[in-house]
Design a binder for these strands. Structure first.
Length: 575
DNA sequence: GCCGTTTTCGGCCCGACTGTTTTCAGTCG
């Protein structure tokens, strides 16, 4: 089987690690890192073009040499250069580079002078007091490295964006209570709404940095201070999440927001553009020589390069700079564009609230309609409904709608897609519904072909409306099942059905690149909360985050339609 | 290793913080 883009990226990253340990030309190392980032984020499978390696040189940062290596990796899963690097280095040494405080030079010295080859051995050597004896290290470095190695061994986690949101909101409230904080922005991957977040980058505009620093370090949730200086500080919260604070003057706030929002790839591309125009961009502003020409707002920074200001979710160097130069940025969907929610559970299956309670909560969340989509009988653990129970629910919804004009409740089901591609309930009862949401909950390890055929067959059912959580991933727990998303997208377009963006923070499925693939193919998506209780609608914001990262506008999302037009769109899917 | 309106060489993003030095290298984002 051909290697995936992620595999190619991983090979380049590993080569870069070894070259770094060898203290090779840093620009050569950067070329491998850039290439790793580029291919890993590339939305199309490179394997599709494996025959024509020359074509890979069209990718940014890929020249003749790397293009040939991509071809080799796609064919064999590895490449000769990597095999030879592995032969000449101790296998575990790469691990040392992952430990904060250990870079290539220290890793090399730790290996050569203390025989340290893994994080475990580093911790052992530090405990034995063997690190402080090395030149360039002292007692302080030794204890820092011990702590870092132990922390690394204990956990190497990223946080769901919802977990990051809770901690970001609480810390922001604490900081904003200070007179010294003029403006505040939680930047970084959190602001870009990535599906997971490694740490929080908090940016503050103030003329009194010392005061802000003090308030930050006094935050009751701080467990450990990693670093502190006049304009920045790093701490670990009690949860284990790292937070970096940076304080700049108000006139630099826009430049700092650009800088600390990233992504790294976006910033590098931006600086190259600036350099071509004889400008220099840093976190304090845009400079021509020593003269500052912009920096107070993000828009002012981008304007010096004749770029429209890009929403943070687009800043991944995936074409947003070109679109901004042409002033053709999409008008991204916003939470307030949603009129309803097409995936909601009640206590009739595995939800925790009644139909009436869920409807009331949806109304409070500002929605005009919801679809009740409880599980079907095959999902016994969730008390799935059989045909009789569904028929009773249909009648109950009709009665509810008659007495509650404030919100419309649509009749639906989250029906299991069985292994053979049939749906889990008979056509006769499905025909009585407003929509049918199909979902894979079992047999997740089928071959790519069988899994894909299974879902394509389900889409051919005369009542199929929406494919729920199309890849089945659970962030940090379970990878997506193996499925040909391009074929699903093409089929959804032919069948005029919809793909879901499941907004549960542990799903966010489709993800950003999947959204973009669907949108570019002309397939509409449904941003759905998959709520199981009255608080579930609060997750819609995270689904919107992925939609925005996928360049979606309101017109690309079916549940931005008012009720009447939504019903027309659904009716077309219901045979 | 990539790239090019300075095009086949000579550049390649840039500043803050720390510890161990005794003026700076290493690391990080």
């Amino acid at each position: 089987m051909a290697a995936t883009n992620a595999t190619v990226g991983a090979v380049f990253d590993e080569i870069a690690d070894w070259l770094e340990l060898d203290q090779a030309n840093p620009f050569r190392i950067r070329a491998y890192r850039n290439a790793a980032r580029t291919v890993a984020a590339w939305p199309k499978p490179l394997a599709d073009a494996a025959q024509d390696t020359e074509a890979f040189t069209d990718l940014p940062g890929i020249g003749k040499d790397l293009a040939e290596k991509i071809g080799e990796i796609l064919r064999t899963g590895s490449c000769g250069q990597l095999r030879s690097l592995r032969r000449t280095h101790p296998r575990g040494l790469r691990e040392l580079l992952r430990i904060p405080g250990v870079g290539p030079r220290r890793a090399e010295r730790l290996f050569r002078e203390a025989g340290v080859t893994t994080a475990r051995r580093l911790a052992d050597a530090a405990r034995a007091g063997r690190i402080r004896a090395l030149r360039g290290f002292g007692a302080r470095s030794e204890s820092d490295l011990l702590q870092a190695a132990e922390a690394w061994l204990a956990s190497d986690r990223r946080w769901r964006v919802s977990e990051a949101a809770q901690q970001a909101d609480a810390l922001s409230r604490h900081l904003l209570a200070s007179q010294d904080v003029a403006e505040l922005c939680v930047a970084g991957s959190y602001r870009r709404q990535r599906d997971t977040v490694g740490d929080l980058d908090v940016l503050v505009a103030s003329r009194r940095a010392a005061g802000v620093n003090r308030v930050f370090l006094d935050y009751p949730d701080v467990s450990r201070v990693l670093a502190q200086g006049p304009t920045r500080a790093s701490v670990v919260l009690k949860s284990g999440m790292q937070v970096d604070l940076r304080v700049v003057k108000p006139e630099s706030f826009g430049a700092a927001m650009v800088y600390f929002t990233g992504s790294k790839a976006h910033n590098l591309a931006l600086r190259r553009l600036a350099q071509k125009r004889g400008l220099k961009i840093n976190e304090y502003g845009v400079y021509r020589g020593t003269r500052r020409v912009a920096g107070e707002t993000e828009a002012s920074v981008y304007a010096t390069l004749d770029l429209s200001c890009m929403p943070p979710e687009l800043r991944e160097n995936r074409g947003e700079l070109e679109a901004a130069a042409a002033h053709r940025l999409p008008t991204l969907i916003e939470l307030r564009d949603l009129h309803g929610d097409l995936h909601v559970h009640t206590d009739a299956s595995d939800g925790h609230a009644s139909l009436a309670e869920m409807a009331a909560a949806a109304r409070r969340a500002g929605l005009d309609y919801i679809a009740i989509t409880d599980h079907s009988r095959h999902l016994a653990v969730a008390h799935g409904l059989d045909a009789d129970a569904l028929a009773r629910q249909i009648d109950a919804i009709d009665r509810f709608n008659a007495g509650h004009p404030g919100i419309a409740v649509l009749k639906g089901i989250e029906v299991d897609i069985l292994e053979n591609g049939e749906l889990d309930l008979p056509l006769s009862v499905l025909r009585r519904l407003d929509l049918v949401v199909g979902a894979v909950h079992s047999q997740l390890r089928l071959s790519r072909t069988r899994q894909t055929e299974r879902i394509l067959r389900a889409m051919d059912h005369p009542c199929f409306s929406v494919l729920a959580h199309p890849t089945g991933r659970l962030i940090g727990e379970r990878d997506a099942y193996d499925v040909d998303l391009d074929r699903l997208v093409r089929h959804a377009r032919e069948r005029s059905c919809f793909l879901e963006i499941n907004a549960q923070p542990d799903r966010l499925d489709l993800d950003d690149t999947g959204c973009r693939t669907a949108m570019e193919a002309g397939v509409r998506l449904a941003v759905s909360s998959d709520s199981h209780d009255v608080h579930g609608f609060g997750n819609l914001r995270f689904g919107i985050g992925q939609a925005r990262r996928g360049w979606l506008e309101a017109k690309d999302v079916v549940n931005t339609l008012p009720l009447r037009q939504l019903k027309e769109a659904l009716a077309k899917t219901m045979g």
